[in-house]
Structure formats: C-alpha cells, structure tokens
Amino acid sequence: MKKILLIALMGILVLNAGCADTTSRARSVFMLLDTSGTYKAEIDKARAIINYLLGTFEPGDSMAVARIDSGSFSEKDIVAKVTFDRRPSVATEQKRLFKTKVDRFITQSKGSAHTDITGGVVQAVQYLNETGAGQKYILIFSDLEEDLAKGHVRDFPLEMAGCQAIALNVTKLRSDNVDPRDYFKRVEGWKKRIEDGGGSWRLLNDLERLDRILET
C-alpha cells in the first residue's frame, strides 16, 4: 500500500517538475504594424487580428507588437510584448493587460515619415529567437512599400531561419493601380528576401479568415 502511494505521489511530482517538452510546442508571434502615412488608416484592422490571436494563445506562447516607423530597429518601437505564464489564470490577466496597451497605442499612434520594414523584421527575428519557441511567426501588417530615411542601410541579406513571415492586408497603392506589376514586384521582392534568408513566406489579404494566420 505504501509503495503504491509512493509511486502515485512520485508520478504527480514528476509531472509537476515539468520533465516534459516545454519549448517545442510554444508559439511566438511578432507583429509589425505599419504606421506610415499611407497605411495608418488600416491600423484598426490590426486590432481585430491581435484580439483574435490573444484569444488563441496558450500558456507558454509569446507575443509582441511593434510599429514600423522611420527607424524600426529599436526597442522603443515595441508597443507590447509578453510571454504568457504557465498558469491559465495569470495568462488571462496578461492578455487583458496586453490588449489595453495595444488599444492605447492604436488610439494614440501618429503617422511616421518613413517606412523601415527591414529594421522591424530584423528586430522581430531577434525577439523570436530569444523566446526559444518552436513555431516563430512574423506578421507584417503593411503595404510592403519600404521608404527608408536617408542614411539607413537595409540592403543586406536577412537571417530568417525557422521563421514564417506572413504579410497581412497588403493594400494596393495608387501607383499599383496604374501598373499592377509594381504590386507583384513588391510582393515577390519581399518573398525572395525572406526565402533567401531561410524563412518561409505567405500572403494573406482575406482578413475574414483569421484562423488561417497561424496555420503551419
């Protein structure tokens, strides 16, 4: 009898000790929000995506939201970041706090003069690698039109190994209407850069199907 109790107790202790695989299944998402003048009007749509993602995250997952402005490779551009606690009750509270921060940002955000997408992507890769998550996603909520400030160097190859880049709501510019090839060229250019860096690329313009965002 004592032996049985001991075995049962040990079993529960072993489970508690967390001998299990805690990293490989965790997801980590870094969302880049374009706040440049032409795209700022779209930013309300990003709120719905963030809210949806917050609803799907489980304890152990990580999420960060950062803005794309004139120089995006900066911690100052990170609006909110969190790694959800292993306890669901704490994770729920963290989600509430995260939502509040994002809501405040969306209400108060100002348009930027330039658009440094590459800087944001580099920052995202750095953050995702630090989380040690098994699945790493970079959500780029932008028209993908990069407009760098003078002197910024961004024409270097990206290190995207293990990351999935998903471009969301890539709107067409006025010039794209004149020559649609510009749009395809822009999207293809980013696809090539990401894939050359070892990452994978997806384009998702239909925001009605949010469940497709984190499909592997």
Partner: peptide, 9 residues
Amino acid sequence: SEMVGGGSY
C-alpha cells in the same frame, strides 16, 4: 493546468 502548467507536454 493551473497546477502543472498549461503549456507543457
């Protein structure tokens, strides 16, 4: 999951 963690497998 509150006791043993919700994200471990």
